[in-house]
């Protein structure tokens, strides 16, 4: 379908909200099948980029090609090939997990919505909770269901807008595992995050958005080269609170 193996090509992307210029000419490319992390502080315009790329928001100018389709002239084809997991879990609270999944499967016009739902429930270990209302789910379960809903119909490109914000450490590690599995299966993942560690853990390519422009982009190794070579220093390594927390939780799990 696509001559180049780029999942996304963005050139000269601009967007303003009234007087406020949020994107001042953004350029970047995302390789097919890779994990791309867009970094930036709060309000840098990460979500604006995601909204434009997922056809929710119109760009002011620039060329944007998603999965080989032009965003402006072929938005329907773009929507067919992507999926969005927004900043807040976009799940239906009143429906059950199963109903949420089969609803999305019907809206994607798949022929066996129930089967699709069952498979995804199993894959995301939600089978037990499948027939419970989503309002009874924990934050981590909700996020899992949210991501599962984005996988219905196997889109080639998945947008995850700050997927781990508000999750506990275990939930975060779970999401990381899912993202890695997705990329191993050939899906392109576009991820925004404010946690640098997250980008370091997951991303093949990293781009930093600052004041409306991409100021650096490349692989982690390339970014590291931009800085002076590492010096050897001796620092006493204290465990972080997260490491302590996970170690204790891990022990508890083993005791069970």
């Amino acid at each position: 379908m696509n001559m180049q193996n780029k999942a996304i090509r963005v050139k000269g992307l601009k967007k303003s909200y009234k007087q406020l210029e949020v994107l001042k000419g953004v350029d970047f490319e995302v390789e097919q099948g890779s994990i791309f992390a867009l970094l930036g502080s709060n309000g840098a315009g990460k979500t604006t980029i995601v909204k434009i790329l997922t056809t929710l928001l119109k760009q002011d100018s620039g060329t944007t090609i998603v999965n080989g389709f032009d965003l402006v002239s072929e938005p329907d084809h773009v929507r067919q090939s992507i999926s969005l997991t927004g900043q807040f879990a976009a799940v239906d609270e009143i429906l059950t997990g199963r109903e949420n999944l089969s609803m999305i499967a019907r809206l994607r016009h798949l022929s066996h919505p129930r089967q699709v739902a069952d498979d995804l429930l199993k894959r995301f270990s939600l089978t037990e909770a499948a027939d419970r209302g989503v309002s009874t789910y924990s934050g981590g379960m909700r996020r899992r269901l949210d991501i599962a809903m984005s996988l219905v119909g196997k889109p080639q490109l998945i947008f995850l807008d700050e997927p781990t914000t508000g999750l506990d450490p275990e939930g975060r590690i779970e999401v990381w595992k899912i993202v890695k599995e997705l990329a191993d299966g050939g899906t392109t993942v576009f991820l925004t995050t404010q946690y640098l560690e997250e980008a370091e853990q997951l991303a093949d390519q990293i781009a930093i958005l600052h004041e409306g422009k991409i100021i650096v982009s490349g692989t982690l190794a390339e970014l590291k080269k931009l800085f002076p070579p590492a010096k050897v220093e001796y620092i006493e390594k204290q465990p972080t609170l997260e490491e302590i927390f996970l170690a204790i939780i891990g022990q508890k799990m083993e005791e069970k």
Binding site: L56, L84, H109, M149
Partner: peptide
């Protein structure tokens, strides 16, 4: 509020 509208709008419906 819940963002489900955005999910629907980003889908091929």
């Amino acid at each position: 509020q819940r963002g489900i509208l955005e999910r629907f709008h980003s889908m091929p419906i």
